[in-house]
Design a protein around this nucleic acid. Structure first.
Lengths: 237, 237
DNA sequence: CGCTATGTTGATCCATATCAATAAGTGTGG
DNA sequence: CCACACTTATTGATATGGATCAACATAGCG
């Protein structure tokens, strides 16, 4: 876990990130020279909400939970998978983190000093364009999550989540949940107990669950209940 | 309501927007030349979610409600006051609007073709910097709203909202609600009936309400209940 | 092989929505 | 200027979604 300069073997993965793919080689190398890479065990808190945003983080392998707390309560806000960045907005604004982050599993994380990111933004046209595109994407994702929360019941949110995961699994009739139910419940804005019951309630629409394995008997039946909407559920639009 | 080129008398107000204040004169004039201004009566739907984002909108006077619908339900997402823009993210990504917009009152709205915005972004460093800062700000606002929704009860949300409005009114002991309770309820993610009862429940913490007028007897008392948190309630951070 | 965290199930409680009735504005046209 | 229609706000009664509490089962994991 000692802090090391980034090995060049990690460069290609990061370079492929659309955030870095359009920038000049020279600027990319400048960013990489100032960057660090660390390997973390599971359940390590990487950042804490309220801290100042000294580094842009990139998940190279593993996965990271973004969560927030208030008054003794806690909620999962998002999950970050390789290869992507997190806390870009705090880095840009040089403002305190609004969310905490912890590794879910053994993870490899790259850290780029925030001031380097801001400096390169000002001199590299492609990087600037990429950052603004990425940020707009992030913004739209949160808006969709908020519509999901305000317009749907927890049962409807779960149904739509399952349809999305199913699509994500190449439209297979069966697939595994990507993370533990405890966190899924928190992400969907409900308690674990309520999630357990929601799964049972969805049996009426042909959803079978065995451990982490989900089987959807009749997609159309589930869709009639879930009423998926591209303006809420499509990750791309 | 006929579409007209923007009169030069509107330029200064827009120029002062931090989104436009740092850009070169030449680029600013280029944007303005392609822009239109329209006056709208109250309750006119300016854009509809799902439509393609042809124009960046700027509220010059009046106010605009951003709302979303699904399955016959509707919720207010935000209110836009002069002078500021809305649907910047859709403009940047050239993607469909995720929210609809309607005037709340008689309003003056400027429309800048989205492709002009994207074109100027690529040639003006100051404008690019301003856009990315603005977007990061928008993103953080929604994250805060989401924390508010997921971590607090409706009573706690209302209490913190009142504290914020009070600060917004120069820490006056009395102030008026800025918009009708019906919309306030929707913004806070509750029904009008529930809001009505929530106001009465806050009497225990020294909140008196008469029509649109709010009086907070003891700020500290209300704060002990509301537990305001800069990472949720501060508009600036 | 136990320990600990996770998941399930049942009973109950609480927050919030819904339905219904009434009151109070607000704007419109006569 | 008033009468009417229409929307908004309040209040009460009730229903329901979802949380909490508790008990137990189960699955990883050292």
């Amino acid at each position: 876990m000692a802090r090391l300069g980034m090995p060049e073997s990690d460069y290609p993965d990061i370079r492929e990130l659309h955030l870095f793919s359009e920038m000049a080689d020279e600027q990319f190398m400048a960013l990489m020279r100032g960057a660090y890479v660390q390997n973390f065990p599971p359940r390590i808190e990487l950042i804490t909400e309220g801290d100042s945003s000294d580094f842009l983080h990139i998940v190279i392998s593993g996965s990271v939970d973004l969560f927030s707390t208030w008054n003794g309560r806690e909620t999962s806000m998002a999950t970050v998978y390789p290869v992507s960045t997190f806390i870009l907005a705090a880095t840009i604004r040089d403002a305190p983190y609004l969310m905490s982050a912890r590794t879910l599993e053994k993870s490899r994380i790259a850290l780029i000093p925030s001031q380097d990111v801001r400096a390169v933004f000002d001199v590299d046209q492609g990087f600037a364009r990429a950052i603004v595109t990425e940020l707009a994407q992030c913004y739209r994702s949160v808006i969709k999550a908020q519509k999901d929360l305000k317009l749907r019941t927890s049962l409807e949110r779960l149904a739509n989540y399952l349809l999305l995961q199913q699509r994500h699994s190449g439209d297979a009739a069966e697939f595994d949940l990507r993370f533990e139910k405890r966190r899924l419940a928190s992400m969907l804005g409900m308690t674990p107990e309520n999630l357990s019951r929601a799964f049972k309630a969805l049996r009426h629409y042909g959803v079978a669950i065995d451990g982490n394995r989900i089987r959807i008997a009749d997609i159309e039946d589930l869709k009639r209940f879930a009423k998926p909407d591209p303006l809420i559920d499509d990750p791309s639009t």
